[in-house]
Amino acid sequence: MTLTVRAFRTDDPRDAESVAGVRRATIPYLVCTAGTLCWEVAHASVGQRLRRLVAERPDGTVAGCADTGLVAGGTEPPQGFLHTAVVPGAVGRGVGSALVAAGEAYLAALGVRRVHSWVADEGRAARFAARHGYTRSRRARFLGLDLRRAVLPELPDPLPTGVTLHRVAEFGDALRPLHEADTECAADEPGDLRVGRTPYEVWLRHNWRRPDWDAELSSVALVDGQVAAYSVAQTDGVDRYWSGMTGTRRAFRGRGLARLAKLAALRRARAAGYAHAFTGNDAANAPMLAVNQRLGYTEVATEWRCVKPL
């Protein structure tokens, strides 16, 4: 297949719609909108060196896309990421290889020593990754919940002593307590990449100011006025809901607070008309997997984080 691999055009709405379509066709569990794709490119931190690539056919249609850049907040020598997606009808015709070659060349020029990529846990994708020098590292699970049919538990009434539930929207601009909670919880997530502390303004810009993150649906559990647990909602504005992050601070773990926060967010999402809820967990994150299973989530797909030395 004759292809041109080029940079994503933020000033062309057709590019954003085409790439969003590729993403939705290949990873339907993730929330993806054209507006958010443009926002990510426009607001990426300088240190991330984000580059979004598009594989274009001669007729101008998009056959695949890729995101590549430096791992944000990494505390090790230069680490890069490269995630590719190819529309089902173009698989096996050189699109993925062209995107990988362009992405790796870009990362090599940045001095990257290791590249990380998420690869679907199925035969063709696994063979493609192995052929290009990527080896499996960690497994992750996508979980789904049909909000239209799910039997969500009622929130306890009364709540446990000292516990109150809130929408993130109630915090207004006073989000530093959430930053502290998110920083602590992110540091404890299973993974093969060490991540340093993200400054508050950077965290605010790349998380809570994203156009697809919903402060009305996102939930926070306070214990005696302190942020103890939270669940972040990410939506496409149509029918899909993604749990961006759910966590409990160390001092409050083992009390069911993450489940409470997530349950409150899910119930609001259903009331707002969202039909499909998705989330993702590292396969070794037993506590969060247990929370999700108790809420009715079931596994819909798995992926592997794969690594390649450059």
Rank of each mutant, 00 (worst) to 15 (best):
V5W: 07
R6P: 03
A7D: 12
F8Y: 12
R24F: 03
R24T: 06
G35V: 00
H43S: 01
S45I: 03
R52F: 07
E56T: 04
G60V: 05
G60N: 13
A63R: 04
A63I: 04
L70A: 01
G73A: 03
G74A: 14
G74Q: 13
E76G: 07
P77A: 01
F81M: 01
G92T: 11
V95C: 03
L99H: 05
A101R: 13
A109Q: 14
V115A: 02
A120W: 15
E122S: 12
A129V: 07
A129I: 04
G133I: 13
G133R: 15
S137Q: 12
R139I: 01
L145H: 03
L147E: 04
R148Q: 09
L152S: 08
L155C: 09
F171H: 12
A174L: 06
A174K: 12
P177Y: 14
L178W: 14
C185G: 04
A187C: 05
E189N: 11
D192V: 06
R194C: 00
V195M: 08
G196T: 00
R197E: 10
E201V: 01
W213A: 04
S219W: 08
A221S: 09
A221D: 10
A221R: 08
A221M: 11
L222T: 11
G225H: 10
V232C: 11
T235G: 02
D236F: 11
V238T: 13
S243L: 13
S243C: 14
M245N: 05
R250W: 12
G254L: 03
G254A: 04
R259T: 13
L263Y: 09
R267P: 09
A269G: 08
A275E: 15
F278S: 14
G280M: 01
G280C: 02
V291Y: 05
V291K: 03
Q293P: 00
A301L: 08
R305Y: 07
V307H: 04
K308E: 13
